[in-house]
Structure formats: structure tokens, C-alpha cells
Simulated assay, not measured.
Amino acid sequence: MTAHRPISPPSGAVFPAAARALFAQAYPDQPAKLTHGMAGHPLLSLDALATLAERMPSGSVEYNLGKLPLGVRPEETPSNGLTLGETIRTIESNGSWAVLKNVERDPAYASLLDGALAELEPIVGEKTGPMLHREAFIFLSSPDSVTPFHMDPEHNILLQIMGTKTMTVFPARDEELVPAQKSEEFHGGGHRNLVWQDGFKARGTAVTLLPGDAIHVPVKAPHFVENGPTVSVSLSVTWRSDRSVAEGELHSFNALLRRRGLPVGAVSAAPERQGLRRLAYRVMRKLGA
């Protein structure tokens, strides 16, 4: 995996100095509520996003009805019966949720991603090395929509652009929330949704986001999202690091060992330092194991 193109700072700061300081204290392992200056950007209006969505490949969009149980199974997620353009243009009343993936493939939206990450790159580089595989996602939600309990493989900052939402974030590396075998399945291509139990809720921290707020979500920190009473638009800027890549390799190695009835190893809080196990995995994968 290679680093993305070099990036240059924007003309105006996306993250003010106080937000960058909070991010530096939290990154990479703790969530943190931040602020940003991207609310009201014309590329993030509903009309602009509907136009963007209609020119995106079908594999880069996902949308469905928005009022879902926290623990819905992926195969049980209901369709809303609309086209994507219709979904976005009428999202205030159609009870839906949508995500536009990899919007950085569009040059204008690539500039948004680059501008935001340029300010964080020095902090990230000092702690987890170069930013790898940088991506941007845009989430649109009808009033009162719910994004079920799930986890993501990237370092992530979610910027709230329009409307309000509450994200409840849970500790990463809690094996009661995310059993080891779920992590192994996830890194092998399994779905992001997790099994929900009502007793989990007390372990989470609920963070309400207004336009101009943002939240740093650590790699694989479980979370769910409850939208407020108006349409919500959020921009997610993400990247991988040697740490996140290493974690994926080590869980994949454990999956390989488990399938063969061999003992699995622990994945530490600093998996990038587990060089011997990573090397063993790469050798076995190269040999077709």
C-alpha cells in the first residue's frame, strides 16, 4: 500500500488550532470531538451531492431505508424503492440513508479531502507514519435515521455539515463488543455491522454533532449513529496507517492459523511492532497458504 499524492494546505484552515491540538492529544487511540470550518461549502449542498451521485459508478453508492434496528443483519436491510438521485433530492421526507463512497475520485472533492488532511498530516506522521490510502465518504440521512452498530477499518474524522446527529462511540479492542473471530472475518472481507446487545450501551460515549462539529473515531472503534430531526449531511475523511495495515494483517494471520487448528496470537495495541508475525503471514500468503 502506498501513500497518496502530496497535499498542500488550504487557503483557509479547515481545523482551527484548538481542534488540531485536541486531535494531537487523542490520536490514534481515543475519540475526540473537534470543530471544523467546512459547513456550508457549496460542494456539500444537497443539489451538488445529487449531481455528484448521479455520475458516480453504482459500486460507489449505497442507500436504503433509514430507520433501522441497531443490530440489523446486512441481508435484512430494506430498500427504499427510489433511485439514488431521487433519494438525495427528497431525503427530507423519504426516510432514507445514503453514502457516497470514494468521492475523492472526483477532482473537486479530492481537493476537499486534501485540504482537510494537509492540516493533520504532521500530527499523524509523527505518531503512525505516512497517511496511506486516503479516502472521503459523504453520508446523507433523513430525519430520525439510524446507522446500525458497526466498525470501520480506517482512521476517520467525521465532519458534520448540515443537520444534527448523535454518534455513540465504544472502546476499540474490547473483545466482548468485537470478538476476535469477528475481527478475523471482518479483515477477510466480512460485513462491518456488529451484533448488538442492549447491555453494551452503557459502555459507549454519546457525542452530539452540530454543523461545524467533527469527531475523530479510532480504527475499529464500534459506533452507531442516530440522526436528529432534520436532514443530515456529513463528510468523512479517512486514511490508513502502518498500524491499521498491521492490525489487518495480524487478524488475517490468526484466521489462517485458526482454520488449520493452530494456536492464534494476540494482536497488541501497537501491532506495527509485531514484525515477526507480520513477516510470517506475508510468507505464508505468498506461498499460497
Rank of each mutant, 00 (worst) to 15 (best):
V264M: 09
M131V: 09
I215S: 13
H150R: 12
A136W: 04
L276I: 10
H150Q: 14
F139P: 01
Q25L: 15
M38K: 03
P42Q: 06
N94Q: 12
Q197A: 07
V72T: 10
E176K: 03
V237F: 07
N102T: 15
L84R: 04
A98H: 07
L84D: 02
F170S: 01
H155M: 09
L113F: 12
G204H: 04
R105H: 11
K101Y: 11
R243F: 02
E119R: 08
V72A: 11
F23T: 04
R260P: 02
L44P: 07
I91S: 07
T35Q: 13
D144Q: 14
D114A: 15
A221R: 00
G40H: 02
P148N: 11
L279Q: 15
L100F: 01
I138G: 07
S11M: 09
P10C: 07
I138R: 06
V233E: 04
Q197I: 01
G163P: 05
S142C: 02
N193A: 09
L209N: 14
P74A: 11
M151P: 05
M131D: 07
V231N: 05
L22S: 15
A3P: 08
S252M: 01
H4V: 07
F149V: 06
I161N: 02
L279G: 13
S268V: 04
T168V: 01
E154S: 11
G81N: 13
W239L: 03
D106N: 15
Y109P: 10
E54P: 02
G59N: 15
G66P: 05
S241F: 06
